Amino acid sequence: MDPYRNPFAPGAGSRPPELAGRDIILEAARISCGRAINGKNARSMMLLGLRGTGKTVLLNEIGRNAEKQGLLVSRVESPEGESLARLIYPEMRKVMRSLSAVDAAKQIATRGLKGLRNFAAIFKIEIAGVEIGVEHEPGLADTGELQYDLPELFILIGKAAQAAGRGWLLLIDEVQYLSEADLSALIVAMHRISQEGLPVLLVGAGLPQIARLAGEAKSYAERLFQYPAVGALDTVSAGQAIEKPIIEEEARIAPGALRAIVERTQGYPFFLQEWASVVWNNSDGPEIKAADVDQSYDETLALLDAGFFKVRIDRLTKSEVQFVKAMAQLGDGPYAMADIAQAMGRTQKSLGPARSNIISKGMIYSTDHGYIDFSVPLFAEFMRRQG
């Protein structure tokens, strides 16, 4: 069929044509944003899920909805090794400057800009362009301790937003890459916001260990956030995600063809989009048949192996590759560290550094004490295909 009309979007973070099966999460976020901007207590949110489940897509959709509700929205992604201070400073500055243009919020926002200038100086953040006419205010966000300075700035943003009749939504992707100290400071800041009842919300997204990491950083984090799981789509939602865009392009898909895609991808959104995209391009149409799906399987696997999977295995050292190979040869996870050690002829203690490094690279995560699993769906199958 015509590739120019191919409705599917297998790119990283690309919004699929049909965002199926996520209504509950999107509605919860809409309610929180609506409550916040109306002066009601609202809970922030941490989206938890494996790679390729659509967390980034959901973050972006939540942001778009929040903008329609009148909130100022900031989007950042946490790369490995970057400090939270450097990551969100530019966003806080943009929000403060925007609020300073509103008469009712100008005084508070101007004070916030002073605090940001102190913050940038103390954390050695280089900025292009200095705020003209903004002086330092000694004692405001200048301790050099993020757990003290960040809450001060968040509260000033919240008060300025409240005065302006607005709200602020901070979206942070890849939360698992934040350091323990930075995550703790972020949680402290949101706790203060919650206590003050200010219209500031955080929606983060990351791997499943985020809930545990947040709880370890601050015990009250469990009550501060909602933790919706973003996993594989159920059979109905997965089918809807494939069939509806095809029908909207005035084409059809046979029930057996649809069932094959849903079952063999196990409902994981990225894989659904990838396979459906390949099938569309390879089908003569106007109906996609089961034979079209079967004939497109090898090409889809090759694309996934060369892209989605390979970019992740390439980040590992040779010894780390051996570690994940041993995991995959044990079958599908979760995997007991004792079994991995036995398979490799090593002690669990000697594998500790490799385990820690692979977790820090976001390839595996701890599912329970003594157990780990891949953070990438179907990764064990990929490793077994490599021989």
Rank of each mutant, 00 (worst) to 15 (best):
A36L: 05
A36I: 04
G129F: 11
I122Y: 04
I62A: 10
E67M: 13
V57E: 06
L59G: 04
L99R: 11
L84N: 05
V95Q: 08
G115P: 11
I37S: 02
H136E: 15
C33L: 08
A29T: 08
K106P: 00
T53C: 12
N60Y: 14
I108Y: 03
A28S: 14
V95F: 09
N65W: 05
A109I: 01
G81N: 14
L48C: 09
S98N: 09
A109V: 00
L50K: 12
M92R: 01
N38T: 10
L84D: 02
A128R: 15
K106I: 00
E131L: 10
G129L: 09
V76P: 02
M45R: 06
A121D: 13
A36K: 02
Q69H: 06
A141V: 08
I37R: 04
R97Q: 14
K40W: 07
A105W: 06
K55Y: 08
S32G: 03
V134D: 03
G52M: 07
S100I: 00
I125M: 00
A85E: 07
R43C: 06
G115N: 12
G112S: 10
G54L: 07
N118Y: 07
Q107R: 15
K94P: 00
I127Y: 11
L58E: 11
R43P: 00
A104P: 00
S83D: 08
L140S: 07
R111S: 10
A101C: 05
K55C: 07
S74P: 05
I122G: 03
L47N: 05
L50C: 01
V130W: 09
G63E: 05
E67S: 10
N118C: 05
D142A: 05
G112T: 02
S100A: 14
